[in-house]
């Protein structure tokens, strides 16, 4: 009876707090013999035994405050934020990124919106005057052995086809980073059940993202050199330039992007809050600088031309 000794051990511990030969005889509900401090749950069940005073103690009872759920993303008082002109921010960022390959390092723009947490989100494509990424490889889903297939190949698609393309995607062979689908093949695509593979990569063609089309040429041209952006948690982020860009190039890109973003914001249903709040410029390794919308540097010894040197 090995277990008896272990049981006696726990008994001995019990005897420290309880009488020597306690209530074992005839204790059918042994839980009642256990000290209260050892069994808070048991203690809780017996609270109705306690004497209640006339007042009921209602005044002292702590009420757990229900946390108020905010319907909009939090916005901050920007009057305390130090803001920079574009050239000032670039001067700092170029200092932070000194010695890094200029084609690898990107300027990033973060636009904070005053926005409701639920409701429509901003999502669009922008064609910047000076493209940031130049490695777009397009795959096209269209019926096999059709004139469309030849057209797609001539447009520079790296992968073309229908069933053969589905099969290669299933095998994990994805040589493209943009995928479009011709309307004729859309049903076949939906039946193929590739959403699990393509969805997480953001490659699944859909009407919403304008990647299901009957105008292959127009869509391919739009995709090459076009950058997608979308609002996440009330902030739209996009790469707007390479480190080697001049202030004027970066300014043009930011202007083109902001113009489109404002149009998108205007298109949003009036029932939902959607407004510009803050624009922040950062870079791959640099901190974020809140922009004040001005261009020239504040230091009169520096000109925008000084910020064009090779990095």
């Amino acid at each position: 009876m090995a277990s008896l000794s272990s049981c006696l051990a726990s008994m001995a511990r019990l005897s420290l707090a309880a009488p020597a030969r306690p209530l074992l005889l005839g204790s059918a509900t042994s839980a009642s013999t256990i000290p209260k401090f050892l069994l808070p749950a048991a203690a809780a069940t017996t609270t109705w035994h306690q004497v209640r005073h006339a007042s009921g103690g209602g005044g002292m009872r702590k009420r757990v405050k229900k946390k108020k759920a905010h319907k909009t993303f939090r916005t901050y008082d920007l009057s305390q934020m130090q803001q920079f002109s574009l050239c000032d921010a670039m001067r700092y960022l170029r200092a932070f990124e000194v010695g890094r390959p200029p084609a690898v390092v990107k300027y990033e723009l973060h636009v904070k919106l005053k926005s409701t947490k639920s409701g429509p989100v901003i999502r669009d494509r922008v064609r910047l005057p000076f493209p940031v990424k130049t490695d777009t490889r397009i795959g096209v889903i269209c019926p096999e052995d059709s004139p469309l297939m030849i057209e797609a190949q001539q447009l520079g698609a790296v992968a073309v086809g229908q069933e053969s393309l589905f099969e290669s995607i299933r095998q994990g062979n994805i040589p493209f980073n943009k995928l479009i689908c011709h309307v004729d093949s859309h049903q076949a695509l939906l039946k193929a059940g590739l959403g699990k593979i393509l969805g997480p990569k953001g490659l699944m063609p859909s009407q919403k993202t304008k990647t299901v089309t009957n105008d292959l040429k127009g869509t391919v041209q739009e995709l090459i050199g076009a950058d997608e952006f979308r609002e996440r948690n009330g902030v739209v982020r996009i790469a707007v330039g390479q480190l080697g860009f001049t202030p004027q190039m970066l300014s043009d890109n930011i202007k083109a992007f902001m113009t489109l973003l404002k149009e998108d914001i205007d298109k949003v249903d009036d029932n939902y809050l959607k407004e510009l709040d803050e624009v922040v410029l950062s870079s791959t390794n640099g901190p974020g600088f809140s922009l004040n919308g001005l261009f020239p540097p504040t230091d009169d010894k520096i000109t925008p031309e000084d910020l064009q040197s090779v990095m």
Binding site: S10, L24, S30, T33, I34, F37, L38, P40, A42
Partner: peptide, 22 residues
């Protein structure tokens, strides 16, 4: 608290064992 609770459970089961044998 977790330790106290587990000890209490052990004692409870031990007592049950004794009761059954008795």
């Amino acid at each position: 608290i977790a330790q106290a609770l587990s000890e209490a459970a052990a004692i409870k089961s031990a007592l049950r064992w004794f009761d059954a044998r008795r």
